[in-house]
Computed example of a mutant assay.
Amino acid sequence: MELDNNLEEQKFIRAKKKVETLKSFYTHFAVYLVVNTILSTSKVIRNMNNGETFQEAFFDLNTLALWFLWGVPMLLHAFKAFGFNFFMGSDWEKRKIQEYLNEGKNERS
């Protein structure tokens, strides 16, 4: 019975951690959209006041680089939040924990 309670507690902790990770991603994404929209709008307006057309101002390399340079970490955060684990695999953490548990058993023997 105690083992079942422990497993349920572990499941709850994992679920809570996943929700916190998703919440962190959604907050990051909202900030990404708001800040980049404000900065891009100000750049486009400034460039248009300097005599550029809307297309020239909007497709300026600096404006697009702003979205791209912050977009790369945003994409990596999305991979982490939604479980696209390319580098270590989705069950890497479980395997590592099991490996360390097995090492502890071998040391006690």
Rank of each mutant, 00 (worst) to 15 (best):
Phe86Ile: 14
Asn36Glu: 10
Glu20Gly: 10
Glu2Gln: 08
Asn106Thr: 15
Met48Tyr: 05
Thr27Gln: 06
Ile13Ser: 08
Trp67Gly: 03
Thr41Asn: 02
Ser40Val: 02
Ala15Arg: 06
Phe54Tyr: 15
Glu93Asn: 01
Phe68Ile: 13
Ser42Lys: 13
Glu107Pro: 00
Arg14Asp: 14
Glu52Arg: 02
Ala81Leu: 03
Asp4Met: 10
Glu2Val: 07
Val34Trp: 06
Leu22Glu: 02
Tyr26Ala: 08
Ser40Asn: 03
Asn5Ala: 13
Phe68Ala: 10
Val19Tyr: 04
Ile45Glu: 00
Lys11Phe: 08
Leu7Phe: 11
Met88Gly: 05
Ala30His: 07
Thr21Lys: 09
Glu2His: 01
Phe68His: 09
Thr27Ser: 14
Phe29Lys: 05
Ala30Ser: 14
Ala15Ile: 11
Val72Gln: 06
Gly51Glu: 04
Asp91Glu: 12
Phe86Leu: 12
Trp92Pro: 01
Asn106Val: 12
Trp92Tyr: 11
Lys23Ala: 14
Met88Asp: 10
Ser109Ile: 09
Ser90Ala: 11
Phe87Cys: 02
Pro73Leu: 03
Phe25Lys: 05
Ala15His: 02
Val35Asn: 01
Phe54Gly: 03
Tyr26Arg: 11
Gly71Ala: 06
Lys43Glu: 02
Lys43Asp: 13
Phe25Gly: 02
Phe12Ser: 08
Val72Phe: 15
Glu2Asp: 06
Val72Gly: 13
Ser24Val: 04
Ala30Thr: 15
Phe87Trp: 14
Leu33Met: 09
Tyr26Phe: 15
Phe58Gly: 00
Phe86Tyr: 10
Lys80Trp: 00
Ala78Thr: 03
Ile13Ala: 13
Lys96Pro: 01
Glu8His: 05
Ile13Lys: 09
Thr37Phe: 11
Ile45Ser: 02
Phe25Glu: 01
Leu69Cys: 11
Thr63Tyr: 02
Glu9Pro: 00
Phe79His: 10
Phe58His: 03
Val31Tyr: 10
Glu103Cys: 02
Asn106Arg: 13
Lys43Tyr: 01
Glu93Lys: 15
Val34Leu: 11
Trp67Lys: 12
Phe25His: 04
Phe68Ser: 08
Phe86Gln: 06
Phe25Pro: 04
Lys80Cys: 01
Asn6Gln: 11
Val31Pro: 01
Val31Glu: 09
Trp92Glu: 05
Lys94Val: 05
Trp67Met: 09
Met1His: 06
Ser40Asp: 01
Ser42Thr: 09
Leu76Trp: 06
Asp60Gly: 00
Asn62Cys: 04
Ser42Arg: 13
Ile45Arg: 08
Arg14Leu: 13
Arg95Phe: 03
Ala81Tyr: 08
Gly89Glu: 01
Lys105Val: 08
Arg46Ser: 06
Asp91Pro: 00
Thr21Arg: 08
Met74Arg: 07
Phe12Asp: 11
Glu56Tyr: 03
Leu66Cys: 02
Glu99Arg: 03
Phe82Lys: 02
Leu64Glu: 02
Trp67Thr: 00
Asn36Ala: 09
Thr37Ile: 07
Ala78Glu: 10
Ile97Arg: 09
Lys96His: 05
Ala78Asn: 03
Tyr100Gly: 00
Phe29Ile: 05
Asn47Leu: 07
Glu2Met: 07
Gly89Gln: 13
Thr41Asp: 00
Leu7Arg: 12
Gln98Thr: 10
Met48Lys: 06
Val44Ile: 15
Arg14Gly: 04
Ser24Ile: 03
Lys23Glu: 10
Leu75Tyr: 07
Gly104Leu: 10
Val31Cys: 08
Leu66Gly: 00
Leu69Lys: 12
Pro73Ile: 07
Leu69Thr: 07
Asn49Gln: 14
Phe87His: 00
